[in-house]
Design a binder for these strands. Structure first.
Lengths: 213, 213
DNA sequence: GTCTATACTGAGATAGAC
DNA sequence: GTCTATCTCAGTATAGAC
């Protein structure tokens, strides 16, 4: 078959999205795709590289939509700093858009972010997008040092991954579980988080709570 | 040996903390502990259950310290709602305290949180602590519905896990990497996040950014 | 260049002897 | 309680057919 590679990619994407990376073996994939095990390694090299190609194929359009949304927001701001919430919307709404079409993929993305795979897998695809968003945020948040902002963005990804792949809130029961709602709540959460005054360095040594072993 | 179980626990804790759950095989553990492979399954049932016992053993004192710190904060508040930042300190400082003594364990905790293992493993150990912290937060944040607060706490854990186990910030170079600093920054970040006004439900349908496939 | 068949190593788990 | 032997299943590597 000339489309062996495509069939592997499509099947892998579906299975990874449905059940997660670790839970899906290459043998599951090849069985459903109707190809040989070694073909996977021939075309992709390894299971992790296969995951990488699955992700990269989807992440490109998302990041382009993010950049387009940021362009639009900056045009509307007409030279003034773009409100943080507006920047966050530009960043998160394309995710929601993709998630609506393939909800499982959003879960996979969340899982990959939380497991730290994304940074390694898609660094080159994220960089151009981040190189626009980080300065935009920096402009809108002049009170933050670059370092402080960097950490906040880092923390942000943790919260984003929860919004994307989270399912069980052990302390809540029977909560409505619409991804759109979650993203809205996330944007409110992050807007406040970025707007917070920077950490006081002096506070570090101030308090020492000891855990008695 | 009568201390086979202890030796397995101690060795597993060290290796899991140093290299992560997935990266450590039972065969690594038994080799270093000098016990038989089947002994692990006899005493713990499975690798995951072993991880559970390792975590539970450490998490108890941390949560007790958290509760004690919250008690102290409430005493100081003398009946008034405790400031959110104070509650966050009560929650996060014991983590820092443990992390200072065993930095690798903090990383393991962060990893487990981000992978969603913690909720399942330590639900019963977290519940009593959360049943104090959630109402305390609710009192200090009357503008938030219980649901909104629940999601914010959920998002919080995502950010916490990044602070605990994060290492590489792909868009920053040469950042100082002290865990105490990270926690301080995290507290500032979360203080703002919790204080943010609640998400407007109406906003959900307002904006539709399409990703052109 | 593509793909198949098969083998290799290491993982977690288990049955049963002692 | 402990240990040997073995099972199934994973990801990976390679030789060779087309």
């Amino acid at each position: 078959m000339i489309d062996t590679k495509q069939r592997i990619l499509d099947t892998a994407e579906r299975l990874f999205a449905e059940r997660g990376y670790d839970a899906v073996s290459l043998r599951h994939i090849i069985a459903e795709a109707g190809v040989n095990l070694a073909a996977v390694h021939y075309h992709f090299g390894s299971k992790e590289d296969l995951l990488g190609e699955v992700v990269l194929r989807k992440i490109g359009p998302v990041n382009e939509a993010r950049l387009a949304a940021l362009d639009q927001a900056e045009k509307e701001a007409a030279g003034a700093p773009v409100p943080v919430e507006r920047i966050l919307r530009a960043f998160l709404m394309p995710t929601l858009s993709v998630a609506r079409r393939s909800p499982d993929f959003a879960k996979l993305m969340g899982r990959l972010v939380s497991e730290g795979h994304i940074e390694r897998l898609a660094a080159q695809r994220f960089r151009p997008m981040l190189e626009r968003f980080v300065p935009a945020l920096a402009r809108s948040l002049p009170a933050l040092t670059r370092e402080e902002l960097g950490w906040r963005i880092y923390f942000m990804f943790g919260a984003v991954s929860r919004a994307l792949c989270g399912e069980s809130q052990i302390w809540l029961t029977g909560a409505v579980d619409d991804l759109g709602d979650r993203i809205q709540r996330l944007i409110a959460f992050l807007s406040g988080a970025f707007a917070a005054p920077p950490a006081r360095q002096a506070a570090l040594e101030a308090e020492q709570v000891e855990v008695t072993k």
